[in-house]
Amino acid sequence: MKYPRRKFLKFAGCTGALFVAAAAGLLKTGTAWAAPWNKNAFEAKAMAETLKGLGASGLIESKDITITAPDIAENGAIVPVAVTSRIPNTQSIAIIAEKNPFPLAASFDIMAGGDSYVSTRLKMGQTSDVRAVVKADGKFYTAAREVKITVGGCG
């Protein structure tokens, strides 16, 4: 054996510890796997800024995205919205309520094993388009659906 085993182990141990320290420093939330919260996109007040924050450009209108939401929501505090993407290799789904003070409501990264479907409930301040932005194979696709709000749910 040319390389002393003890020396090798010592070296491996040191670099391992360094790697762990670096990873812990990068992740503010403390969960070892979560991506950092996308502050730029979530704190944007205009659609253009929101899309920029998401890194979305060259949006393609797609009929392969289904947005399930009521036509009229009486209570803007609870608007059920589900998004299904039938685009192959869907990587992420973002849900945007265009006229909310901060339009971006949610952004989901879909990993292998996850289906390209999410369902949740939004607060909406006023009647507005609900837009889904889907990333698949590095391209961005979009679809929108108007939801009429009787009583706003932001206050």
Partner: peptide, 18 residues
């Protein structure tokens, strides 16, 4: 399988379906 980020626009007592 799913890594989601939310804003304050998600309803109180949130529901998530996946």
């Amino acid at each position: 399988v799913l890594d989601g980020q939310w804003s304050q626009a998600i309803s109180r007592d949130p529901f998530l379906g996946v």
